[in-house]
Design a protein around this nucleic acid. Structure first.
Length: 252
DNA sequence: AATGGATCCAACCGCAGTTGC
DNA sequence: GGCAACTGCGGTTGGATCCAT
């Protein structure tokens, strides 16, 4: 059973690419393109590499339009915003950022952004629970020229978050399994609890102009009083509590 | 200077979806 | 319709480098 391997592992080189291999791959792709067949390409290019490895090397490193180096604050905001809406759809997120690859965005999120956000979260709830998921900039519609998305991930502005309660509420109102209980034993990835994409980072309280929202996960079945009025987004196992950004909160 | 832990990132792995026969 | 080949994607790994002690 199982899939046919894409190449003979014993016959191909693995590990870091040498400058010579890079040059051979770059020269071949620039001259012929990938030919729509990455599997056959290494042989034609004189490379002892798996086609998948060639494709990855080209897409993530050798492509001329790739930008290497640090991410800007604006890019940070885009990543955070899109991650909150889309979850770990790295290719989609990267497609909204000129010159960035999904691997870049994924690495940057996992090594820097995620930690930074967790470190800067405000301990609003005393119960043992995951920290706030993210600080969410008001989404900016992607450029109209973006071809990757035929349907925008951004909901229309008039699509409001379904408001379950606007006064003080508690998680006792809801009954569903807590997804983080599973996450605690490592069996569930964090992205499993990522917000669904069908919500809008609209202003809370009906028409304010706050430009950021903080999301708190409210596990179903907990007895925590969430305090201030806000808006609730139902997700499997609980709710996300949306409320305007605390002015004292900083991303850096 | 040595060393051990933390961090970063390129590359690999395996699965799912798509395509063509 | 079924199957195999291929592509694309997200998760994970491992080596290199950095940094604190």
């Amino acid at each position: 059973m199982g899939r046919t391997p894409c190449c003979d592992r014993a016959a191909v080189k693995r590990g870091p690419w040498s400058p010579e291999e890079d040059e051979a791959l770059r020269a071949y792709v620039q001259r012929h393109g990938s030919g729509g067949n990455w599997i056959a390409m290494p042989k034609k290019a004189g490379l002892q590499r798996c086609g998948k490895s060639c494709r990855l090397r080209w897409l993530n490193y050798l492509r001329p339009d790739i930008r290497h180096g640090g991410f800007t604050d604006e890019e940070d905001a885009v990543i955070i915003s899109l991650y909150t809406q889309l979850g770990s759809k790295w290719s989609l997120i990267a497609s909204q950022m000129e010159g960035r690859t999904d691997n870049d965005v994924k690495n940057y999120w996992n090594t820097k952004l995620k930690k930074r956000l967790l470190a800067s979260s405000v301990p609003r709830l005393s119960r043992s629970r995951p920290p706030p998921v993210a600080v969410v900039p008001r989404p900016t519609p992607p450029p109209a020229t973006t071809a990757a998305l035929t349907s925008s991930p951004f909901p229309p502005a008039e699509l409001a978050i379904p408001t379950v309660k606007t006064e003080t509420y508690t998680c006792d109102d809801f009954l569903a399994p807590d997804p983080f209980a599973a996450a605690a034993d490592g069996s569930t990835s964090a992205s499993a609890a990522s917000p669904a994409s069908n919500w809008s980072a609209d202003t809370a309280g009906g028409g304010g102009e706050a430009s950021f929202f903080l999301l708190d996960f409210c596990a179903a079945g907990s007895s925590q009083d969430l305090g201030a009025a806000g808006q609730l987004q139902q997700v499997p196992g609980g709710y996300y509590h949306h409320y305007p950004l605390d002015p004292s909160l900083s991303l850096v």
